[in-house]
């Protein structure tokens, strides 16, 4: 099954490859990996999404835990947590009806247009993996030229009470159809491309 691991490791050269090496040494594929700083800049947080049976993933967690520069490893899969990833999608949407269709999808998915030209636009979308993938699938027939994805980041929920339901409700509200997002889709948002969002 799919596992999301959250690892706090010293922000030093080579430490990320030490972690990643544990996966490749066991023939494990990493679905996504993303790294960034934590409130204490000496430490970074690495989020790795991988697929594997629970026992093998547990072994990798243990192997990670014994690395000398790893402070903590959590398999957050079973804990209440929030996962997000971002995608930058280059869509071949020329001015006209195609572009209008793309913009309406952008509104529905609460994405935003971050660059635009005669031949197309670049759209920034974020959400959980399913939402981002659904968005990409809807854009695909229109003509995706390229896209790049950050991979998943995760953080534990503040409240552990009934939080799994909270996660579900939130996703129901925002995706796939957000009934509140029915305003003028052409109206530039504050983070419109020209406002250097």
């Amino acid at each position: 099954m799919r596992h999301t691991l959250s690892i706090v490791v010293a922000d030093q050269p080579g430490e990320l490859s030490r972690i990643v090496g544990l996966f490749s040494a066991r023939g494990f594929n990493i679905e996504t990996v993303s790294a960034g700083e934590t409130p204490d800049p000496k430490w970074s947080r690495v989020t790795i999404v991988t697929r594997g049976d629970d026992r093998t993933v547990e072994q990798i967690v243990k192997q990670c835990q014994r690395l000398a520069r790893v402070r903590e490893v959590q398999d957050v899969t079973m804990q209440p947590h929030i996962e997000r990833e971002m995608a930058l999608i280059d869509v071949a949407a020329k001015p006209g009806a195609t572009r209008q269709e793309v913009l309406s999808l952008v509104a529905v998915f609460r994405a935003k247009v971050v660059d635009i030209s005669e031949s197309g636009m670049i759209i920034e979308a974020s959400g959980n993996k399913d939402k981002v993938e659904a968005f990409i699938e809807l854009l695909r027939p229109i003509g995706i030229r390229d896209y790049t994805r950050t991979g998943c980041i995760a953080i534990g929920r503040l409240s552990r009470v009934d939080s799994s339901r909270a996660a579900t409700e939130e996703e129901e509200l925002s995706w796939p159809v957000d009934e509140r997002a029915t305003g003028d889709v052409n109206k530039p948002s504050p983070s419109h491309p020209f406002s250097t969002g």
């Binding site: 026992r55 547990e58 072994q59 243990k62 192997q63 835990q65 014994r66």
Partner: peptide, 8 residues
């Protein structure tokens, strides 16, 4: 002493 050995 090594948790990674247990259950491997």
């Amino acid at each position: 002493i090594d948790p990674a050995n247990v259950g491997k």
